[in-house]
Each structure stands twice: as C-alpha cells, then as structure tokens.
Write a protein that binds this DNA or RNA. Sequence first.
DNA 1: ATCATAACGCTTTTT
DNA 2: GCGTTATGAT
Length: 826
Amino acid sequence: MDREDFKKRFIKARRAAIETDFSRLNDMQREAVLTTEGPLLLLAGAGSGKTTVLINRIVNLIRYGRGSDCDFVPDWAEESDIEAMESGRAGADLLGVEPCEPWRILAITFTNKAADELKARLLTALGEESQDIWAMTFHSCCVRILRRHIDLIGYDKSFTIYDSSDSQAVMKRVAKELELDEKMFPPKLILSAISRAKDEMLSPEDFAAAAEKSFDSKQRHYARCYVEYEKRLKAANAVDFDDLIFLTVRLLSENREVREYYQRFFRYVLVDEYQDTSILQYKLVSLLAGGCNNLCVVGDDDQSIYKFRGATIENILSFEKSYPGARTIKLEQNYRSTAHILGAANAVIRNNLGRKGKELWTNAGDGERPKLYVAMNEDDEAQFVANRILEAVSGGMNFRDCAVLYRMNAQSNRLEYAFKRQGIPYKVVGGMRFFDRAEIKDITSYLAAVHNPDDDLRLLRIINNPPRGIGAATIETVRSIASVEGRSLSSVIANADRYPELKTPSKKLLKFAALMDELRESAEKMPLDDFYDELLNKSGYLESLGTNDEALARIDNLKELKSNIIAYMESAETPTLAGFLDEIALYTDLDSVESGDNNVIMMTMHAAKGLEFPYVFIVGMEDGIFPSLRSIGDSEEMEEERRLCYVALTRAKEKLFLIAAKQRMIFGKTSSNMISRFVDEIPEEHIEKPENTYSHRYSAWDEPDDEPSYSWQRREKRTPDEGTYSWQRRERRTDESVGYGGWSARKTEVRQYKKPVEAPKKTVETPKAPALMALEVGDRVKHKAFGEGTVLAITPMPGDALVSVQFGDKEKKLMLKTAGSFMTKI
DNA sequence: ATCATAACGCTTTTT
DNA sequence: GCGTTATGAT
C-alpha cells in the first residue's frame, strides 16, 4: 500500500519536474506539450503560439518520452529519487520513460514553407539530432515512401512527378483526342473531377463503373478522360500530385508488410493545419499513425479556407468520433493582436454554425478600434491606403510592417499604381509563380527529358524549342507511329531513318536525338551546375532568346534557377539530377518573402494565412467581392468566406483598416456594391465607421433588402491629400508612358518596386512645388514630436524622400513630404 | 511558321 | 480591363 502511495507521489513529482522545462508556456500550451500519449486534438486559434507548442512537444518527446503522461514507475525507484526530482536535481535518466528517437517522429505540414520553418526551429531547439525527425510535407513524405516501395503496386521506382500544369497539358491533349468540346469540358474541370475521384479512392475503372450506373453523360466523359489520362501518365512513368497521396494510401492499405513496417516505425505522428486535410489525407494519417495511435493534430476549424481544393472541415469536427478516447485542448490566448481586433474577429466568426466554438482573448490591451473607410472608387481606396502607409512610415514604422490584403489577385493593380506614384516600395506575393514561367518550364522540361527519355510530355515541349524545323506535321507523324507501336516518342525519333513516313525530316529528328544523347552523357559525368550551363548552350536555348529586355528578364530567371541548383547541391548529400527534379517538383514556392527587404507586402487573404503584420489593410470590403459573388446565396460557401474574413482580420497586430469603395470597376464594368456584410457583423464597440454609414440587413436567404445601394453614406468630406479623380487619371497616364520596366514584360518581371537607377543623392533637390526641405546627411533638425536629431540617410523617392533621423537613442524613418511640416533645419 | 486580330471569360491555391 | 487563346493571313 505504501508502494501505491509512493508511486502516485513519484508520478506527480516526475511530471512537475518535467514541467519546469516548459515553464515559459501558458497552462494550456504546457498541457498540450505534456500530453504525449493517445490521440490529441489541439484547437489552436490564430496567434496562439501553435508552432511553439509543436516544437516543445517534440522536444519533450525526445527528452522524456512518455515521462509526463504515463503511470510507469521503475522498480528501483526510491524516496531519494522523489527528493531529487523535487529539488530539480533529476536528469533525463530519471525523468524520461522511453525517450523517443528523433527518426520515429513524423511531423507533417502542408507547405514547404511551414516544413522549413519547423525544421529550422527544431534545429535551434535540439541541434543536430533534429535532422532525423521526419518533418516534411504530405507530399514529400509520400515521395519518400513511394521511392522505396512503389514497385509493390506495379509502378517503377524512378517515376517522375507531374505538376499541375503538366497535368493540364496532358488533359488538354486527352480531351482533344476524345473530341470533347473545350467549352463544355475545360481540362481544369475534368482534372478536378479526377482529383475528387482520387480523393474518394476510386480507380479509373471504379469511376467509370460508377459513371455508367449514374446515367450522367458528363460523368461518363470524365471517366473516359480519367482512364486515358492515367494510361498516359503510366506510359510516361509519371505520377501527379494527387497520385502521390493516393498511391501511398493504396500501398499502405494493400500491403500489410509495408503498412506494419511504418506503423511500428513511427511512434509519434503530428499533423499541422489539420483543418486543411482532405479525406485522402485523413486516410493517410490514420494509416501511418495506426500503430501506436499517438496522433496529435493541430488546427483551427475557424481558419479552414481551402474547401475548394478538397479540404474537409469534417476531419477536425469529427476527430473525437474518429479517434475514441481523444483528448482536446483549446489554445485561446492570443499573443498577436490587440483586444479590439480580436473582438471584431470573434464577432464575425460567431456567425458561423459549423464550428467547435472558440473565443480568442488577450491581455495585450485594447489598442485601437479597426477603422472602416468608405472610398469613392478604387483609386480613392488605393490613395487612402498609400497615405496611411506614408503616415505610418513618417511615424517610424517600416514599409514591411504594412500588408495589404485582397480577395483576388486582380485587385492588386490599382494599388500598385498608387504605390508607384507615391514611391512606396512594395512586393506582390503570389500571382505568377517561378516554376510556371515559360523559360523555367522549358529548361526543367529539358532536365526531365534528359533524365527520363520516356517523358513524352516534356519531350513535346522542347522538341522544337528553340526552333529546329520540326513542325506540327512531323510531330503528328511521330506520335501516330509511337501510338501504333506502343513505344515512346524518343525511341521513334532515335530510329527515324527506319520509317519511310519520316524520311524527309529524319535528319532533323536524328540530330535532336543525338543532342539528347549527348546531354545525357554530360549529365552523367559533370557536376549538376556545369551540366546546366552545358544544357543552356548546347540546346541552343540561350542563344535563341536574343538580347532584348524581355530576354534579359528571362535570362535572369534562368540564373535564378542555377542558383537553385547550386543551393540544392550544397544541401543534398549526394546531388543527382533525379534528386533535383524531385525537389523542384515539390518545391514551387521560391518567391518567399525575404524578411530583409523593406517592402509593403501585398497578397490575397489566402496567402496571408499564418503571417502577421503590425498594420493590415483589407481592401474591397464589399458584397460581391468579399464575400465573393459566387458564394452569396450558398450558406456553406458563405461560412468559408467568413472564415477567410476571420483569417484576414487576425493578421493584424496593432492597426487594422477595412476599406470599401462605393463604385468600382470589376471585369471591365463599373458597379456599385454594398459594404460587406462582414463589416455589419462587427459591433460598434469594435469598429470605427464614418458618420452616417448606413447599416444594411439581409434576410435569411442572403437577399439584400430593398434599400438603394448608394445610400449607405451620405456625403463624406474629402481631405485635400486624398487627391481628386482627374488628377489621378493624369498621373496614371504619365506613369504608363514612362513605362516602369514596361508592362509588356510584366510576365517575366519580378513584380517588385525597384529604386530609381541613379545613385542615391546626398542632397535632395527641390523637384517641384511644394518644395521639399533641402537636407543633407549630417544636418541637425528639430521635429515637433521627436525633438532634435541628426540626419543619418536620405533615400530619394519619386516626388519625395525617405529620411532617417537619429532622435536621441531612437532612429526614425520619415517621409520628407509629410514630415517636412513638422520639422525644421537648425 | 509566325504574327496579328478578335473573342472570351474571369475566385481563392499548395503540392 | 487584361491576359490567354483560337483563328486566319502573310
């Protein structure tokens, strides 16, 4: 009996001793870290320190195993051990119970960015041994498993990975050959139908059978495409993104040996952003974690914004049902935003029905109420944002502290105009991605075709690029021969002289085949980066680009690709062409925000998930834009939009501006929309609106009431600095004629504001009225608010200048135009 | 084969 | 309003 009592005290003391390692966490966070065994659902609100918990949890697992969460007491334990633990003298040998080996921990994320961040923070926390942890994305985890065992389900281990544009190219061909009208059956739609089928684990045959039964002709066409699409991928020894997950699930379900191997292998499985998982990913996770059942999922049902690409919020809502005995911990303390911002966000998300229910709180203080500005039109809106940013910078903030969020990428245009005009440096995140650029696709297609001669898709892309006189007619002939003989294009091309039909172009074809062989040989014997140069030259690609402005931008991008190759060579143990192809197939997100740059960040609300900024501007707060037109009338879609709104609002740390325009051009048509219903959902106490802002109500069917739409605001006063419409028009013309790098080259341009080419002048001249103060580095100035200071640096900007001034021990950055009136030279 | 013009049709996006 | 794409003309 004494022993029982002793055991209880021992366990308590052990947990208490382990807790001291995590004393910096709040109670809920610590609970999450110390709960190691069995299924655990972690509902982590925005800004609640989720990643910190994840890191600490892994540290705990490696250091103490299940020490904090089990009843085990060693037989040799005695009273002095408890004393040791209570006095803080106990080490891991006493506190730990089966500490976990790093490589038995699987931490799955969604994006490479998240995986990289996790790895970096684990390295800081644990050092070298952290590198054995399986911290990676769903897809890279699957690639790792499939590269080892995919032959067990009838694929070749050296498979290539097709990205979505590859998939689209294949599907376009398939649809054409099946004589489907592109208007009725856009390749994108067919692919998403197939994606859904894979999500439900339907093979082409299953899908076809189901379609037959349903008498739905559309489904039957989809099924035909699926069959043909799959056939082509298989022939090219390729798999698409969905296949990576699908085939891994198939492998694990069908092959008991492999399944049990991984189930024994992984002792702890953690999944980040669980609200974004699909049914298939749910299956994958439950297969991988099926052994020890130590599955910890982290997510926020209120931040699920990716339903359109297959995510089911159900996964998180029914976690406790799927995993009986699961524990749930909510992290609701927010360390990011002030109370008014959280109040607004909480108020909006409360209107959703399908949620677990969470309420963020903070003890960071009330802060300022979010502000609503009702603009005349999009130019006024952009001007407003620009002015507030300049004010903020005058007040000592950096440009990078400000973010502008919008619903669709197209909205960035007007803001860019305004920012350029005002000399505000900015960076647009998203839009055209690096690996989608034509020149990058071209060269990676060469790399893929060199590595895998059977990759017909990539071969077709490069065979006549640069032009080699191999035209469409020739290619058609080659393809029909290949299809009749059931061989790959490259093998037909290599033997072109044996086919009478190819007599005329055989010389060109053989020359191309020889080129590819030569490149393959080079790839074998050269280091990757040298081979890359060789490829650019021997293929004639570089030469064919020419030397105009657009070509130079493309060449820049190709140099960027080379630096990627070099970075890969440095990071990989044994760099190979195959390895690099794997990496770029999964790593498309290279234009990550470089934190060193001092730019205003512009992006969609989707892209902003997981980020935070002191100042946040949300533009286009209008019904029809946000929430989007397509979601109005559908309550499920509306809830998703509302979650997106919640995500957007919770990005702000200090100041939040919501901007709506009375009139705006959408898709070339002028329309006036009502202020977003989400604004109405924020109570007066948490939002500052202009006077006379009418609030409008909706019926339960999302129908706007019959109030005329222009009447929400009567008449707002215009301050002079907001500018007038005609002035803005004129300015924009000038802007266009100057060219700013040329709009035509926009596709290849990195859309980032570049400083004027001239070297920074030490003196700011007075370019035009109103005259700017003439200042030089080293001048003493007196500022109304900050007192006396010394000018440290001056950066000229169109029509203005950014001045750094040392006031006492504080350095402030001021825009001269704005700050000039508060400052005098002394 | 390559350029010019017209017609269309548009969320959100990672891997 | 803009970018992509299909079609026809040279």
